[in-house]
């Protein structure tokens, strides 16, 4: 490339050689293709799974999503309790992961000495690379027996209080919604943390310094500058984590107890959609197979719904904070 600083730029320099047009067209086509390919793949997955799942949907009608009796041996597939399990586990996962991730990200960006920052970041990256089956086995063999005793002592403590009594009931073996939720929560902490950390780092330093100069404490500065600036990014990170939590298969399968039921008891055993699919797909045939693929379709739809509502939420919140400032 010629050193443009030595002489004034002419029109010829900007035009480049005439052949430049072709790579440009190719690049545009390639990039456009890649962009549309995502949509095509998504549509292909949606269509083919729905077609595969159709026999079950047709046989069960709306009962597929609104009935509780999941009895493959008798050809009855009501998935409501399984969908419920997925939602509860994901919700617990978020309750565990979001405060923890925000705390870690704030610590890394605002409080930690520089030396510590990179080591915490490294540890988070290592945590993100632990295979989910390892989380699952650790949860099943080590965490579960300890949690069981904890659950039962909590259940004892609240046994006289009406609402808490049914939410924190006794646990038989520690396999429960709560155990699965905690494991999933730990698994999505690295994902949420790394995105939120990046988002926090984009907050303009001048605004932060400005707030501090006006006498704000560090927490007031975080509240007043960092959070409003990062709302969209935080919601995006949480959505990504939620997607992972809802789709998590093997770790949940190992600790949830494989017993589909709708109960308020978070310490009770339940069942989640991906676990049912993973455990049974290789032995299933006919309508049973369709019903399992139907769970996949349900998960797909659920994820899309949650993502859309998150986008709407972000837009509202962004508009509100912009309007305020």
């Amino acid at each position: 490339m010629t050193d443009l600083s030595l002489r004034p730029i002419t029109v010829d320099d900007l035009a480049g050689d005439r052949n430049g047009a072709r790579p440009d067209t190719l690049f545009r086509a390639g990039a456009k293709g890649a962009g549309y390919l995502v949509l095509v793949i998504l549509a292909a997955i949606a269509v083919s799974t729905t077609v595969k799942a159709w026999p079950a949907f047709r046989a069960e009608g709306f009962g597929y999503f609104f009935r509780d009796d999941w009895v493959p041996s008798q050809g009855r597939f009501g998935a409501r309790s399984i969908i419920y399990g997925t939602l509860v586990v994901s919700a617990i996962g978020l309750v565990v992961a979001v405060p923890l991730s925000l705390g870690i990200a704030l610590f890394i960006t605002e409080l930690a000495p520089r030396r510590l920052r990179s080591s915490i970041t490294t540890v988070m990256d290592v945590l993100a690379s632990v295979p989910s089956v390892v989380f699952g086995l650790w949860g099943f063999l080590i965490l579960r027996p300890h949690l069981k005793d904890f659950y039962n002592s909590v259940a004892d403590a609240v046994s006289g209080i009406p609402v808490l009594r049914s939410i924190f009931g006794p646990s038989l073996s520690g396999q429960s919604f709560m155990t699965a939720g905690v494991i999933v929560g730990l698994m999505i902490v690295p994902i949420i943390t790394s995105i939120v950390r990046e988002v926090f780092q984009t907050v303009p330093i001048n605004e932060k310094n400005g707030a501090l100069a006006l006498g704000a404490t560090r927490w007031e500065m975080i509240q007043g500058v960092v959070f409003p600036h990062s709302t969209g990014g935080i919601v995006g990170a949480v959505m990504l984590g939620l997607g992972r939590a809802m789709g998590e298969t093997i770790a949940v399968a190992l600790v949830i107890g494989a017993s589909p039921q709708i109960t308020a008891n978070l310490f009770g055993q339940g069942e989640a959609m991906p676990s049912v699919i993973a455990r049974n797909l290789n032995e299933a045939s006919g309508t049973y197979q369709s019903a399992l693929i139907g769970l996949g379709v349900g998960l797909f739809v659920l994820t899309i719904l949650i993502n859309i509502s998150a986008r709407v939420l972000v837009r509202r919140v962004d508009a509100a904070t912009r309007g305020a400032s």
Partner: peptide, 24 residues
């Protein structure tokens, strides 16, 4: 697979069932 009552619980493979029993 059969339609076990909701008061029961499942575990993966023979080894998973054995692990739950030994710890409960």
């Amino acid at each position: 697979t059969v339609n076990w009552p909701a008061t029961t619980q499942g575990a993966e493979k023979n080894s998973g069932v054995a692990a739950i029993i030994s710890s409960t």
